[in-house]
Simulated assay, not measured.
Amino acid sequence: MTLAALGDSLTQGYGLPMEDGFVPQLQAWLRASGADVDVINAGVSGDTTAGGLSRVAWTLTPDVDAMIVNLGGNDLLRGIDPAVSRANLDGILRTAQDAGVDVLLVGLDAPSNYGPAYKAAFDAMYPELAQTYGLDLYANFFASLQDGTDLMGVRVLYMQSDGIHPSAVGVGKIVDGIGPAVLSLIAQ
């Protein structure tokens, strides 16, 4: 089975040796769990949902059986209107649906610095799109890092010095968290 991971720097493995990034660690985790799967790294550092939409058609080659969509972080960092992000994600999911490719949609939680209306609109788009398309949703890419440790502790233990990108240890925890959802996706 071939699984494409469409995303941004979180998927691409920014700041890490190649073998420590999300895709190589996920592939190793899946194989250790008995899944015969090749994971394609379709992550581009700095990419927004618009960039993902522009790349999705050529990412979905005939070899791709399933796809993880992990986009939206750079939209957040740039304060892009959630309606625009949502429309781009909708286009990505529609393209995957038209290609007959099952998708695991991976969300993020918006910070509150753009105000409550922005946060509510951004946070709602992932579950609403998953429901619209009948997809599995992994609600927050960083969920497994939030294990009761305070925010400063999370940054020290699991993040690179920029406070945005996970360290190799952080990626390992993220993979441990998301891995069962990916196994469920490829079982479909």
Rank of each mutant, 00 (worst) to 15 (best):
T2P: 01
T2G: 00
A4R: 00
A5L: 00
L6M: 06
G7S: 10
G7P: 04
D8N: 14
L10N: 10
T11D: 03
G13I: 07
Y14K: 13
G15Y: 08
L16G: 05
D20G: 01
G21V: 03
F22Q: 00
F22L: 14
V23F: 08
Q25A: 08
Q27I: 01
W29L: 06
R31W: 01
A32F: 00
S33E: 15
G34T: 08
G34F: 05
D38P: 00
V39T: 04
G43F: 09
G43S: 14
G43H: 08
V44W: 14
G46S: 12
T48K: 12
T48V: 07
A50C: 08
R55L: 04
A57P: 00
A57Q: 14
A57T: 10
W58V: 01
T59C: 15
T61Q: 09
P62E: 08
P62D: 11
D63P: 00
D63V: 05
D65V: 03
D65I: 01
A66K: 09
M67C: 14
M67D: 00
V69T: 01
G72C: 13
G73L: 06
N74T: 13
D75K: 04
L76F: 13
L76H: 10
L76N: 10
L77W: 03
R78A: 12
R78H: 09
I80R: 12
D81K: 07
A83W: 05
V84R: 10
A87N: 10
L89M: 03
L89E: 04
D90E: 12
G91Q: 01
L93M: 11
L93W: 05
R94K: 12
R94V: 07
R94I: 09
T95R: 14
Q97T: 14
D98W: 02
L104H: 07
L105N: 12
G107S: 04
A110H: 10
P111W: 09
S112Q: 13
S112Y: 11
N113E: 10
G115S: 09
P116V: 13
P116F: 09
A117W: 06
Y118N: 12
A120C: 12
D123C: 11
D123I: 05
D123H: 11
Y126D: 04
Y126S: 08
P127D: 07
E128S: 07
E128P: 00
A130N: 05
A130L: 04
A130Y: 02
Q131A: 15
G134S: 13
N140L: 11
F142V: 07
A143C: 05
Q146H: 12
D147R: 06
D147I: 10
G148E: 06
G148P: 03
T149V: 07
T149P: 01
T149I: 05
M152V: 14
M152Q: 12
G153R: 11
V154G: 02
V156K: 12
L157A: 15
L157F: 02
Y158W: 15
M159G: 02
M159V: 06
D162A: 07
H165A: 02
P166E: 00
A168R: 00
V171P: 00
G172M: 10
V175K: 02
V175H: 07
G179M: 04
P180S: 06
A181P: 02
A181K: 04
S184N: 15
I186M: 07
